[in-house]
């Protein structure tokens, strides 16, 4: 059986909220290392890869590998019943029809129990190669969100160019052009505000802003976001979570003009 207890329901609520507009039905693959999810959006342009390591739960028990086929809209309805600070426990049998969710508020002695019906999902699984990216940029997640939202007001696409001097986001639209350049900076007192650029070669790629703005719904999960780019390969947008868990998004680049 599976039994996984999260100190705060907030984590799962935020993860599901960040991905539910991108993917609808997906398997939560549970094994002894944790709970993983991989799913592509319908247009096969974006991919979500989530890993909640066993260490993120306390306790965590998973006797046998189990795929929990979940409709995220339905899961959202159930998670709405959990307060952010509630203790959340996920439970399932070895061949489950339902996922049992328990929310506990220790202050008020309230215990809520929900069973979510599961579905059989025949999911395509993609092998993501280990990639040495040409550019790795770490920046505040709210900054990245602001840039994407601002540029989407002008255009559907953004060009991302990285050099040792900085990272430039630029777009061209009907009403005009826009560009935001971030230079590397280190703030000793507020490391969350740092912009760090590791570069082995300059990169220039174009992406759909609609997807990037969608990824930025995860900004509440981490104060920083990591962008990994190489020419002609998908962008990796990573939000690191506590206990080496993560929420990653991959986005195929646009090609040609």
């Amino acid at each position: 059986m599976l039994e996984a207890r999260l100190e705060q329901a907030d984590l799962l609520k935020k993860v599901v909220d960040a991905i539910k507009d991108l993917v609808q039905d997906c398997n939560f693959d549970c094994n002894d290392s944790g709970v993983a999810l991989q799913a592509m959006d319908n247009s096969h342009v974006a991919l979500v890869s989530m890993m909640l390591k066993a260490e993120s739960f306390s306790p965590y028990r998973c006797d046998r590998n189990v795929a929990l086929g979940v409709n995220l809209t339905s899961l959202t309805k159930v998670l709405r019943a959990a307060q952010n600070e509630d203790i959340l426990t996920l439970k399932a049998e070895d061949a489950p029809d339902v996922l049992n969710l328990v929310f506990e508020n220790t202050d008020s002695d309230r215990l809520s129990e929900y069973d979510l019906k599961l579905m059989d999902i025949d999911q395509e699984h993609l092998g993501i190669p280990d990639t040495e990216y040409a550019a790795t940029i770490s920046l505040p997640s709210v900054e990245f969100r602001r840039i994407c939202v601002d540029l989407m007001a002008l255009s559907e696409s953004v060009s991302i160019e990285t050099s040792k001097d900085g990272i430039k986001f630029s777009c061209a639209g009907d009403i005009g052009n826009g560009a935001v350049t971030l230079r590397p900076n280190t703030n000793v007192e507020k490391p969350d505000q740092n912009v760090e650029i590791e570069l082995t070669e300059p990169v220039a790629l174009t992406f759909s802003l609609k997807y990037l703005v969608n990824f930025c719904k995860a900004a509440g999960l981490s104060k920083t976001v990591k962008l990994c780019l190489s020419n002609e390969v998908p962008l990796l947008v990573e939000y690191a979570l506590a206990g080496s868990s993560y929420l990653r998004f991959y986005l195929a680049p646009k090609i040609g003009d």
Binding site: M40, V45, H125, L126, I128, S157, S208, I255
Partner: peptide
């Protein structure tokens, strides 16, 4: 407008 690539061109089904 640039064309949009497909992720399955980069990642192989397993």
């Amino acid at each position: 407008t640039p064309l949009q690539n497909d992720l399955s061109e980069f990642f192989v089904m397993v």
